[in-house]
């Protein structure tokens, strides 16, 4: 059964921020696919749900001239998947958005909600980490920009200050030669939470980034740095070197979804597969040009 709360919709981000600042037990409501479930379970007892879907730009997506992409925080995952599909370099986010819940859920669930819940298992978080997304936050005293890597503090806890709202997610421009992959281990093939999530991004300048979900208290950028060879020419040894570095970053727990051992094991399995798929994608792109 739900606790009693008031539904609030305000005409501007500024008013929404000041409402949030003056109502410490109010919560932001976007798609509602997580928050309503938690309210029903009594795990959240908000006094107000402040709907941001109607705020300017909250569900808008646009690509700027410099190639960067701005996604309104309340944009549903299905819309994001459609928008980004075919844009080189963003594959990981397309794939991550596609494996959250079910089709019906993804018609409602927002990208902003997926990260503001700060679940260690949020599918889109590893993808956003390797894409080096930045977050535009609005608060009572104005706006600020935060790299996604500084956003997650602990399970369920983000860097949002009182009264602050995530307004949009900014994805830096990617070149045609960039490839990224998100792979998820889950119990069923669909409609399940991640046991492990692995995002990999390979840049043409040999820079490689790997991020992990569900193996630490927060989604984790496990590796970012230059590799000895461009993606298409990796040897098994090079992949294994990356795997062993990344594996050391994982600090999983045992819960209902998987044991810590299985999670640790799957980090390596998924990363190897991600490298394989990224290499293949890279080659396909090369041939297509």
């Amino acid at each position: 059964m739900f606790n009693q709360f008031d539904y609030v919709a305000l005409p501007s981000w500024t008013l929404a921020c000041s409402f949030m600042a003056s109502h410490p037990t109010a919560m932001i409501y976007a798609g509602g696919t997580d928050i309503l479930v938690r309210c029903r379970e009594g795990r959240l007892l908000p006094s107000h749900l402040v709907d941001i879907k109607g705020l300017p730009g909250a569900t808008a997506m646009a690509q700027a001239e410099d190639g960067s992409i701005v996604i309104g925080a309340a944009t549903p995952l299905n819309a994001i998947e459609r928008f980004l599909k075919g844009k080189a370099g963003y594959e990981a986010l397309v794939q991550a958005a596609h494996v959250v819940g079910s089709w019906q859920i993804r018609n409602r669930a927002s990208l902003g909600g997926n990260i503001c819940n700060a679940s260690p298992a949020a599918d889109t978080a590893p993808a956003l980490l390797v894409l080096e997304a930045t977050l535009l936050l609005v608060g009572p005293s104005g706006e600020r920009i935060l790299p996604i890597g500084e956003f997650f503090l602990a399970p369920g806890k983000t860097a949002l200050l009182p009264g602050e709202i995530l307004r949009s997610i900014v994805l830096p421009a990617q070149t045609q030669a960039t490839v990224s992959i998100y792979l998820k281990a889950a119990r069923t093939k669909a409609v399940d939470l991640a046991q492990v999530g692995v995002a990999l991004l390979m840049l043409p300048d040999k820079n490689v980034r790997v991020a992990l979900g569900a193996v630490a208290p927060v989604p984790l950028l496990a590796w970012s740095g230059r590799h000895s060879a461009p993606p298409a020419n990796w040897t098994t040894e090079e992949t294994e070197r990356l795997v062993s570095v990344v594996e050391q970053m994982a600090a999983p727990i045992t819960d209902l979804r998987a044991t810590a051992d299985y999670r640790r094991h799957m980090v390596g399995v998924l990363l190897r597969r991600a490298v394989e798929q990224a290499t293949l994608l890279h080659q396909e792109r090369g041939e297509g040009r």
């Binding site: 119990r187 069923t188 093939k189 669909a190 409609v191 399940d192 939470l193 209902l256 979804r257």
Partner: peptide
């Protein structure tokens, strides 16, 4: 049913998994 001290720990479809159409 995952039981701990007689308590059902997975008492919702979040963690009591059934096959989906994908299977």
């Amino acid at each position: 049913l995952q039981l701990s001290q007689g308590q059902v720990k997975n008492q919702s479809f979040v963690d009591y998994k059934i096959a989906t159409a994908a299977e």
